[in-house]
Design a protein around this nucleic acid. Structure first.
Lengths: 144, 144
DNA sequence: TGTGAATAGTTAACAAAGTTAATTAATTTT
DNA sequence: AAAATTAATTAACTTTGTTAACTATTCACA
């Protein structure tokens, strides 16, 4: 492996280790990371069915089903049967759910805030641009 | 939230979504992602103790203990008690373990290769430097 | 030098969150 | 109308993390 690529690989590995460790720690009074992500997604993208969520988050229907059940019990989501297909339910975020999203200091918030504080603004902007480029590359191939 | 920080937050969120979806898919004939990461880490960085691994991967000692037990059974690692401290064991990668690492195209490999190919070398180096800085920031606070 | 505190690792019991297989009810296809 | 497909659920299981309690060893120091 070429030197620049090796250096990148090592750093990326380090970063990934951190992220993995980090990502599974989002827990707001018993609302886990995936729970939260579902609520946030529905908040930002409007009502969707369970099937949609499974596709979006790349997890199985039963996994979504359990998450949704939990979120309904917590009154963070509400569901209503669709008229066109009575098997399907549109899930939408309740007021309480919206408050959760608005009030939550996620790890993502805390991490990005920490980084924003410690990098000079110019560098932060540059890093953001480059990270965006990387995300674009990753998405490109994700489409296949 | 300030504009530069908001832009960073959004991009980071995007990136994190991608990572979460990808990260847990590494499984080579029953050797899970964390198993593999441990073997690779020891291969690239030389023998380390369980304690070191727990620190490196940000997971608890018992979790490491179980992973190591599995990897010893699979003969991917070998251990030897250290002379200086008879509580501690140095873990090192066996030939079989090295073969696993050399023969595996991990997610991380494929991702970093894709990025390396599509970014001009100079940009890749720059991105690596900045990502390293970010990792350092994250590590700093991890120490508290 | 002996003792109490700290440390490396393990075991046990548990929790969270994913999986597949099977079931139900509704819809679509033939 | 019957057969196949689909959205959602339930049940049983797996993986992989956690904390608490334990053993064996080492360290600090009165």
């Amino acid at each position: 492996m070429e030197a620049a690529q090796k250096a990148f690989f090592d750093t990326y590995t380090d970063f990934q280790c951190f992220m993995i460790a980090q990502v599974n720690k989002g827990d707001f009074n018993g609302v886990g990371a995936t729970h939260y992500n579902i609520v946030e997604y529905l908040y930002r993208n409007g009502p969707n069915t369970g099937k949609d969520l499974a596709r979006k988050f790349h997890i199985s229907a039963p996994a979504i089903s359990r998450h949704v059940k939990f979120l309904l019990e917590k009154k963070l989501l509400a569901q209503k049967q669709t008229a066109e297909d009575r098997r399907a339910f549109l899930l939408e975020v309740t007021e309480k759910g919206k408050q959760l999203v608005n009030g939550s200091e996620t790890q993502r918030h805390s991490v990005t805030t920490r980084i924003s504080r410690q990098l000079p603004k110019k560098e932060l902007e540059q890093f953001t641009r480059m990270l965006q480029k990387v995300v674009d590359i990753l998405k490109q191939e994700g489409e296949n």
